[in-house]
Nucleic acid binder design. Structure first.
Length: 377
RNA sequence: GUGGAUUUAGCUUAGUCGGUUAAAGCGCCAGUUUGUGGCACUGGAGACCAUCGGUUCGAAUCCGAUAUUCCACC
C-alpha cells in the first residue's frame, strides 16, 4: 500500500508498505537477476553495507535455473537468497524483447529459445504468475510485451491491446494463486506495466485502460531501449498525469543517475537498472562529481578513494591505484569492490533524494547535482 | 668447425606466383553499456619486415654477405 507523504512539484516522497517491510520512496531496486548481485555481492552485503531497500530478481532466469518449483521447495526466494526485505520479480516480459531473434508471440503467450541450452520455452501470463507465485516475491510484475524501438504505430496499438488482455489474465491468475493453501506469499502484489512505444496517445490510452484495473502499482515499461533521453522524458511527462496518485510508480530499467533525478522530478517513485553493476564490472564508477573509468592510466598512482568522502566499504579502505591494478590484473576482487561502490552510490543517492524531499529542497538538490553527476571525469 | 632452420608492432604469429596504404590475437591508450544471454562491445596508437648490398618497372617475398637465436653432427 502506497502512502504519499510529501510532494514538491511532481516529485513525490512516499512509503510503500508490504509484508516484507516498508519501502521509503523514491527508491532504487538492486538487480539480482538470478538471485544474486553479479560481482560476488550477497544479500548480506546489500543489507548491512549498501543501504539497499529492495532486491529485484528475474522470473525467466530463476524458472530456468534452479527452477521455480525448487525455490518453492526451499521456502521461497527470500529464504533462498537470505534477503528478508521486499523483492520484486520481473515477469520475463523483457526477455521476450531481449531474446527477440528467437521469439514467437501469440495470443496465449510467447515461445522462445532458452539462452542456456536452446530448448523451447513457453511463457504466457498464467505461466509467469505461477512462477512468480512459486518464487514468493513481494511484488510480481505483469507479463507484458516490451515493444522494440522503433516500431510501427499499428503494431504498437495491437501490442498494447494484447498486453492489456494479458494483464487481466495476470490479475485473475494471481488472485487464484494467492488464495491457494500452500502459496509461499499469499499477499503477493501485482504491478501493471504501461506500454505504447514512443506514441504519446497510445501511452495515455493504455495507461487509462490499466488504471481501471486497480492494481497495487503501475510501471512505465519499454523505455531506455534506444530512444533519446528527451523522448523518454516526454513520454513520462505525458503518462504521469494519467497514473493514480495513490499508487506507487515504477520506471522500469532506468537508468543513469541523471535519469533518476529527472524521473523523480517527473513523479516516479521506483527505479531499477543493471547499470551500477554492469558498469562496475567494466571499471566504470559513479560519483556525485561524475563518472570515471578506473582502467584509465591516470589512476595508476592515484591514492584517493574512488569518491573522496564516500562511506562505502570500498572507499573507506582502498585507493583508486589499487582498484586500477586489480582491474588491469583481472582480479575478481576488482568487480566486487566496484559493484559495492556503485550500489552504495545508487542507494545513498536515493537516501539523499528522500532527505531533500523531506526538507522540501529537492529542486535545490536537483539543480546542484544534475550537471556534475553525469559529467565524465 | 660443418649442415639445417629462424629473424615481420611491446609479445606471439600470418603474409599466396614478386604487384596498391604489411594483417591478426594479446598487451597498451581511449570510448560505450539503461526491466543483465557475467570477464562484453567499438575505436585508436604502434612496424625503415635483423643489417648491408644486389636482381627487378616494382622486394617482407628472389640472390649474396654479415649478424641473431635454435637444432643436429664433428
Amino acid at each position: 500500500m502506497y502512502k504519499l507523504i510529501k510532494q514538491e512539484g511532481r516529485a513525490r516522497r512516499g512509503e510503500f508498505s508490504t509484508v516484507h517491510g516498508t519501502i521509503q520512496t523514491p527508491a532504487f531496486m538492486n538487480v539480482a537477476t538470478a538471485g544474486a548481485i553479479k560481482g560476488a555481492v550477497s544479500a548480506l552485503d546489500l543489507k548491512e553495507q549498501l543501504h539497499a531497500r529492495v532486491q529485484l530478481c528475474n522470473t525467466y532466469h530463476l524458472h530456468l535455473r534452479p527452477g521455480d518449483e525448487t525455490v518453492k521447495k526451499l521456502g521461497g526466494i527470500h529464504k533462498f537468497t537470505r534477503w528478508d526485505g521486499p523483492i520484486l520479480t520481473d515477469s520475463g516480459g523483457f526477455q521476450v524483447f531481449s531474446l527477440a531473434k528467437l521469439r514467437n508471440i501469440k495470443e496465449e503467450g510467447v515461445t522462445f529459445a532458452s539462452h542456456i541450452d536452446g530448448r523451447k520455452i513457453f511463457m504466457g501470463p498464467e505461466e509467469s504468475m505461477r512462477i512468480q507465485s512459486n518464487l514468493g516475491s513481494t511484488i510480481a510484475m505483469a507479463f507484458d510485451e516490451c515493444i522494440e524501438n522503433p516500431a510501427e504505430y499499428h503494431y504498437v496499438k495491437n501490442s498494447i491491446e494484447r498486453t492489456t488482455r494479458w494483464l487481466m489474465r495476470c490479475k485473475t491468475e494471481m488472485q487464484r494463486l494467492n488464495a491457494l493453501p500452500d502459496t509461499v506469499n499469499p499477499h503477493q502484489l501485482l504491478f501493471g506495466i504501461n506500454q505504447g512505444g514512443t506514441y504519446e496517445d497510445l501511452r495515455i490510452e493504455h495507461m487509462r485502460r490499466i488504471r481501471e484495473m486497480d492494481l497495487d502499482g503501475y510501471a512505465i515499461g519499454g523505455l531506455a531501449v534506444g530512444e533519446s533521453t528527451e523522448t523518454m522524458y516526454q513520454i513520462i511527462e505525458a503518462v504521469e498525469p494519467e497514473m493514480p496518485k495513490n499508487k506507487i510508480r515504477y520506471l522500469m530499467g532506468v537508468g543513469t543517475p541523471a535519469n533518476i533525478l529527472e524521473g523523480v522530478r517527473r513523479g516516479v517513485d521506483l527505479f531499477d537498472c543493471v547499470m551500477p553493476t554492469r558498469n562496475a564490472r567494466h571499471a566504470h564508477l559513479f560519483t556525485m562529481q561524475g563518472r570515471m573509468n578506473l582502467m584509465n592510466a591516470k589512476y595508476a598512482l592515484d591514492e584517493n578513494p574512488i569518491e573522496p568522502g564516500c562511506q562505502c566499504p570500498t572507499c573507506r579502505n582502498f585507493t583508486r591505484a589499487y582498484l586500477h591494478h586489480l582491474f588491469k590484473a583481472g582480479e575478481m576482487l576488482a568487480m566486487r569492490l566496484a559493484v559495492m561502490h556503485n550500489l552504495y552510490f545508487y542507494n545513498t543517492l536515493m537516501d539523499k533524494i528522500c532527505a531533500a524531499l523531506d526538507e522540501g529542497k529537492f529542486e535545490d538538490f536537483y539543480k546542484e547535482h544534475i550537471e556534475a553527476i553525469s559529467r565524465r571525469i
